[in-house]
Design a protein around this nucleic acid. Sequence first.
RNA 1: GGCCCCAUCGACUAGUGGCCUAGGUCGUAGCCCUCUCAAGGCUAAAACACGAGUUCGAAUCUCGUUGGGGCUACCA
Length: 454
Amino acid sequence: MADKDIVRVRFAPSPTGALHIGGGHTALFNWLWARHTGGKFILRIEDTDLVRSTKEYEQTIMDGMTWLGLDWDEGPDKGGDYGPYRQSERLDLYRKYARQLMDEGKAYRDGEAVLFKVEPGQDVSFDDKVYGRVEVMSDALKERDSDKLKDIVIIKSDGMPTYNYAVVVDDHLMAISHVIRGEDHISNTPKQILLYRALGWDVPVFAHLPMILGKDKKKLSKRHGATSVYEYRDMGYMPDSVFNFLALLGWSPQSRGESGQAGDEIFTRDEAARLFELSRVTRKPAVLDPDKMNFINQEHLKRLDPMTRLAMVRPFWEEMGLPVRNHEDAWLAEALTLMAGRGRTAREMAEFSDYFVAFEPVKARWDGSDISEDRKPGLREFFAALFNVPEWTPDALEACARAWTEERGVKMKDYAMPLRFVLTGMKVSPGIFEVAVHLGRDEVKRRLEHYGLA
RNA sequence: GGCCCCAUCGACUAGUGGCCUAGGUCGUAGCCCUCUCAAGGCUAAAACACGAGUUCGAAUCUCGUUGGGGCUACCA
């Protein structure tokens, strides 16, 4: 069969919440492997938990994946040759194989439920692509605090299949070649292997991924702050950055050259897909480091072309209620170019550059009262000199300011800082002459006049 | 409790017996640059959990200890 060698991987979330950072990590590695090998990436919705699953969450998860740039080839919304892709729509399949197992005497009814009989003494070890050989005997599948072997529930009393059973039926029927999932599933694998064997099916290749932990080394949860990918979006992180950051958790690009130097850690999705190797995935659980996330985001922000950067920042300016529409896009984009390297997220960039969009925020945070009256004449003189510069460019303004202050034996700082406050209302900003030039003579004059300095 | 997995600087990691007086990145500290803050450049501090063994030689192999994590649901 020609299909035999093609890689088919899947991400199988439960629609019981938004796309979690851990889920995103798993989806990402599946995507990486599919794209690296030219295989297929399948999205399957595991909605057998009737009480917790909702269609809204299903959509939210798909939106989250799309935001991250993880496109799938087959799924509930796209269809495909192996559908349906929602477990709640595959109930007849689960019943069919449960019946087969019962007919063969491998499973039995217990009330409304169906249990699979676990026979002792079976070697259910497997070779994990990441963890290597995992040795387990079926005798380990015991009841808690007891030596009794515990049979596996495959159909629940409500008629729905259990996770361990449905996943086997679906992965086989959907011709999944590699099961790439979180390390927390390593203990479930032996049970699934038992089921594959009983059904007479080949087991897929398993590859478990290290867990993502919080700063306290505990499994990531709400306590740790942002846990859904949307929270990262709302904080102003770029999808490319979250992707890049997540890819670096449990994997690193091959060192390049004989120098032993590490490969570049800032990369695009396509570069990651090209470089990705399942064999280079780590086993150690990884702790999420917000500092590194910030750094990676800043790097991606820096590499953006001006108009795309504007598209990232604009929503935050709008959210702040600034009159973004009063300006040309190119002018706003240029303002953000001046901000280069300042701000680690789009939100920070928006907050640190609000004075370009409007004068109101400046007035709101600085009333000018900390400039004493006796300093004003000198400042007015300085600003007047600036306005006399024929060429309104950063270099010309700076040259003028430098000459003017040197001539009088005063510090440039004592004049540049007041100008900074007048124009931005902040003590930090890009080079103040660049800001002045970008705002334009008229606007600078208007702001100076407001503070009685022109 | 039982079973399974893991263990290199604060964090992410490179490393598969000699190339390691352990490399890179983030973060931290200092210096340079400088109208501020970033950015950028340079420098520094910072790790093989512990104990046995195998070996001429161990971060790398084996065993044990300790410490983490996961599973042990008619949740997924």
